[in-house]
């Protein structure tokens, strides 16, 4: 079971308090009327499914209920960074380098 830090509550809690929301920073097409089929396919279905360092969404369902993002190594399952929703995606390469990957 993962231990997850909620950046809103400021505490580390077991995974069962949280729900994973999948890949982070996937933006819904800004003007749905103008979006092409390919835009929708990309938004709705296509996923990078990274093996390595990736950003993903979590929700502290059984806590504060808020969404936040995390950077995790999908090979070791180790978390490398937690940050609040709305903050820009951190430089994953820099985080990877720092973690010695």
């Amino acid at each position: 079971m993962l231990l997850i830090y909620c950046p809103y509550c400021g505490v580390e809690r077991p995974e069962t308090e949280f729900q994973c929301g999948g890949e982070a920073h996937i933006a819904r097409p800004a003007d749905p009327g103008q979006a092409s089929e390919e835009d929708w396919v990309e938004f709705l279905y296509m996923r990078t499914n990274t093996k390595g360092i990736a950003a993903e969404r979590w929700r502290h369902t059984n806590g504060c209920g808020r969404f936040f993002n995390a950077v995790r190594d999908t090979v070791s399952d180790k978390f490398l960074k937690f940050y609040k929703a709305g903050e820009t995606m951190p430089d994953l390469e820099a985080i990877a380098k720092e973690a010695g990957k």
Binding site: L2, E15, Q19, G22, E56, T74
Partner: peptide, 13 residues
């Protein structure tokens, strides 16, 4: 498990 992983292990819960 609920998250993407290539670890070939899962949570005990």
């Amino acid at each position: 498990d609920q998250f993407v992983s290539y670890s070939q292990t899962g949570g005990i819960h």
